[in-house]
Simulated scan of single mutants.
Amino acid sequence: MSVPVLKAENLGITFGGLKAVEGFHVEIEQKELIGLIGPNGAGKTTVFNLLTGVYQPTEGAVYLNGTALIGKKPHQMVAAGIARTFQNIRLFKKMSVLENVKVAFNHNMKYSGLQAILRAPSYWKEEQEIDRKACDLLSVFHMEELAGHVAENLPYGQQRKLEIARALATNPKVLLLDEPAAGMNPTETAELMQAISLIRERFGIAILLIEHDMSLVMNVCERIVVIDYGQIIAHGTPKEIANNPRVIGAYLGE
């Protein structure tokens, strides 16, 4: 059997005696697209924070391609191959669209600080290559013509897409999307659905998606994990989840 790209095993965290997440388990294969859903306050973003090193779990472990990642800080998680977006957009708002993507290539830059100061040929060569790669990522979202625009001047939906493009620039093995369709209109959501499918095929990465837009989740996810009060209450195909009494009860009340 192949080793999962990402595996969370018995993952949990306690805050002052309160168990925010308990016994969370998921295995994601390469190019698999999984949804993580649940009512508000169920612990979805806490799970993302555990998977990306923002929080250190009080129990359990996280593995990337079979390698344990517990104890690593967020920047080390990114370097290992786990990238994410945020529920509340976190862009460098005064920087250009292109610069927002380029900053994510920072850990792969090979020129030295001195070469940058002196504007050496090696500096210009690498900068031009990073510009090209950044524009390629923007083209996934049809945003290459906006490269010179200031990020904060973009419409909300395009800011969301820019954040995803920046995450892709870290060359992740797993991409965690925290409510990417939040605040989008139906047209923008439809475009996002197409972009997510394209990302998976073009970059060959696994995707774990938190989303409240059930139409998006049911249409793009192969499997869905449902949590409530920090615990998994169901997992299965979209059809199985849509007809699961426990899931219906969690969302609508018994």
Results as ranks from 00 to 15, higher is better:
H107A: 09
P121S: 07
A83N: 02
M95K: 07
S96P: 00
L154N: 00
E145V: 09
Q87V: 04
M143H: 04
D136I: 10
P155H: 14
R90Q: 11
K110V: 08
I117G: 02
V101H: 06
L98V: 00
A116G: 07
M109V: 12
R132Q: 15
K94T: 07
F141K: 10
N88H: 05
A116R: 09
L118K: 13
G81M: 05
F105G: 01
V101D: 06
L154H: 04
N88I: 12
C135W: 03
M95W: 01
H107I: 10
D131N: 15
T85C: 07
R132K: 15
S96W: 00
I89H: 02
L138T: 14
E145S: 14
E99F: 08
H149K: 15
I130H: 07
N153F: 07
G157F: 09
A83M: 08
N106A: 11
K94D: 13
K94S: 11
A120E: 04
K102G: 00
Q115H: 00
I117M: 14
R119G: 11
K110L: 05
A80G: 00
L91W: 03
V103Q: 05
V103H: 04
F105L: 03
L114F: 01
E127A: 14
L138A: 13
E127S: 11
L154A: 10
A120R: 07
E99K: 09
H149V: 14
L114P: 04
L154R: 02
F92V: 09
V101K: 03
K93Q: 10
M95H: 00
I89K: 01
A80R: 02
Q115M: 12
I89V: 12
F141E: 09
G148D: 15
Y111M: 08
E145M: 12
H107L: 10
V150D: 02
R119E: 08
R132G: 11
K94A: 10
N153I: 08
L114V: 10
L146M: 15
H107N: 09
A104T: 06
Q115V: 05
T85D: 06
H142R: 13
E129R: 14
A79D: 05
W124L: 13
M95S: 07
K110E: 09
G81I: 01
W124E: 13
K110N: 08
T85S: 11
I117R: 12
D131C: 13
V150E: 04
A147Y: 12
P121H: 08
A120Q: 08
M95Q: 09
L98N: 03
E144M: 12
Y156H: 15
E126N: 07
L114D: 03
A151H: 00
L98D: 01
K102I: 04
R84G: 05
D136C: 10
L91V: 01
L154W: 02
H142V: 03
D131F: 12
F141H: 09
F86T: 03
I130E: 04
I89A: 01
V103W: 05
A120T: 14
S112D: 08
T85L: 06
Q128W: 14
K94R: 10
E145R: 13
V140Q: 11
N100E: 11
P121C: 10
R132N: 13
S122K: 12
Y123F: 15
V150G: 00
R132F: 07
E99Q: 11
K93L: 06
V101Y: 05
G148Q: 15
R119T: 07
M143K: 12
L146S: 12
E127L: 15
C135F: 11
